[in-house]
């Protein structure tokens, strides 16, 4: 009986892939340029705490004062919950925010956010590793 359980364990999980996850989702790295990470410093104009992805709409300004509107996606609320992140930790319109992102390959105002830093110093972040490829942070 224990042998049987062990074989279950050995074979388990492999391929009911959807239940497993989260793994599946992350052909997300195919959509973004993970080789050139960028840091956004701007102001939140909107937060969407929804499935399948959370979103932050952020306005940044370049050196000339021109505004750029970004749409930054994050993991689902359920995934955030696993690090005890509820939407009250996600910021709100008008807040300053710093986000480390990787930018969309063909949609340059769209990015995947992986580290979100708020004015009071709290951080919410996703450390992701897909097929051996990690989401890089900009050089410090």
């Amino acid at each position: 009986m224990r042998q049987k359980i062990l074989s279950f364990v050995l074979f388990a999980l492999g391929l009911l892939l959807p239940t497993l996850s989260a793994l599946a989702h992350h052909s997300v790295l195919a959509e973004y340029d993970s080789k050139h990470p960028v840091t956004l410093n701007g102001v939140i104009t909107r937060v969407l705490w929804i499935n399948p992805h959370t979103f932050w709409y952020v306005d940044t300004r370049d050196a000339n004062g021109n505004v750029k509107h970004w749409q930054v996606e994050g993991p689902s609320p359920a995934e955030w919950h696993n690090a005890k992140v509820t939407r009250d930790l996600a910021g709100k319109p008008g807040d300053n925010i710093t986000i480390e992102v990787i930018v969309g390959k063909t949609v340059p105002d769209r990015a995947l956010g992986h580290k979100f830093t708020f004015p009071d110093g709290h951080v919410i972040q996703l450390k992701m590793n897909e097929n051996g490829e990690t989401v890089a942070s900009p050089a410090r």
């Binding site: 388990a12 793994l23 955030w80 690090a83 709290h122 590793n129 897909e130 097929n131 051996g132």
Partner: peptide, 15 residues
Amino acid sequence: EHTVYFDGRGFVGQS
């Protein structure tokens, strides 16, 4: 600091 870990290779083991 709140961190969500996500390993695309499968931390619970795969077939």
